[in-house]
């Protein structure tokens, strides 16, 4: 019995500590903003923990030194009155000082989160039910492109993310890199990301936004600047014409069916704006906002029956026969 209880406590502690690391944890900071927030969290934990221990200690002492029952209450005298006054006064002053100090620390940290000078990269991020559209901005219009559910950022450079909403309130949260920022329709918010080392960091919508809120994730991939530039110039290119006949047939099906109404593939007549840009869909790690890994099989499953894979998503069921489905999945998987 006792062993079982010990095991349960151990498992519980282990699970709790498991949240301290991994690609989506505010305690596993890999960016300047996230580090500042983690330090603030540590400061609060230490100060509040100390206060809690002191209060418990005072309580224990008071209980230990309790008066025996039935005795007369202590006579109020001038000395004890003064002593009580000093104790209460010191306690109040300490409380005010502590809260003021914590308030100041919190203000300083949150103020430092935005407003990093030298904005290197600007990304306009739009939250939709239930996916993310990222538009990499540039002075030159031909260097602007759209992608979805995956941000790639250069290590060591601040990235300004402009957040705009269209349907309902979402919230942008990459715990390992920065704090949360809400995406509110009709408002412009922004947040700065700066990754200190290369890695894949998971982000998640942090404001309940409907049925598939839990499946509204994205990845932030921090890369060395030269890799980032190579990725960016690859993303700017239009889709390669399909190499094999099956993919070519898939492109024809894509353009004949209603896929083109919502999705864009640069280099083809498909230019829809309602859904994600699919020009380089196979270069992304996941599809359907972090729901499935990008493979030909998962692409086929998604196209075949999106409402079973992700009920409520805005992707409609487009009836395709088996050959068409095979061709379309081959074409999409070839869009590297």
């Amino acid at each position: 019995m006792r062993a079982g209880r010990r095991l349960a406590i151990g498992v519980g502690l282990g699970l709790g500590l498991g949240g301290c690391s991994g690609s989506q944890s505010a305690l596993d900071a890999h960016g300047a903003q996230a580090s500042a927030l983690r330090d603030l969290m540590g400061l609060f934990t230490v100060v509040c923990g100390t206060v809690w221990l002191l209060v418990l200690l005072a309580l224990a002492v008071a209980v230990w030194r309790r008066r025996a029952s039935g005795r007369e209450p202590a006579e109020p005298g001038a000395t004890s009155e003064r002593r009580l006054g000093i104790v209460v006064g010191v306690a109040v002053a300490l409380t005010v000082l502590t809260i003021t100090g914590l308030t100041f620390a919190s203000y300083r940290t949150t103020r430092g989160l935005t407003g990093i000078a030298d904005e290197g990269v600007t990304i306009r991020l739009r939250g939709y039910q239930w996916w993310w559209e990222a538009t990499y901005q540039d002075q030159a219009p031909e260097r602007v492109f759209r992608t979805a559910n995956e941000l790639r950022i250069p290590v060591g450079r601040p990235v300004r993310v402009e957040l705009a909403g269209v349907d309902v309130i979402h919230s942008f949260w990459v715990p390992s890199l920065a704090g949360k920022q809400d995406i509110i329709p009709g408002r412009q918010n922004e947040i700065t990301l700066k990754a200190e080392r290369p890695g894949i960091y998971r982000g998640q919508c942090a404001e309940f936004c409907g049925l598939q809120h839990a499946h509204m994730a994205f990845l932030v991939i921090a890369e060395l600047p030269e890799n980032y530039e190579a990725w960016r110039s690859a993303q700017l290119r239009a889709a390669e014409p399909p190499a094999d006949p099956e993919a070519a047939r898939g492109r024809d099906v894509f353009l004949a069916k209603s896929c083109k109404a919502c999705h864009a593939i640069r280099g083809t007549p498909a230019g829809g704006v309602l859904g994600p840009d699919l020009t380089h869909v196979a270069s992304r790690e996941t599809i359907a906002a972090g729901l499935l890994p990008t493979t030909r099989g998962s692409l086929a499953a998604w196209v075949a029956d999106p409402q079973t894979v992700k009920p409520g998503s805005k992707m409609p069921l487009v009836p395709l026969d088996a050959d068409e489905l095979r061709a379309v999945s081959a074409y999409l998987a070839s869009l590297k």
């Binding site: 209603s258 083109k260 109404a261 409609p316």
Partner: peptide
Amino acid sequence: SYADKLNSEQ
């Protein structure tokens, strides 16, 4: 015509 862009439900 929107027959090639939207399905019947849409």
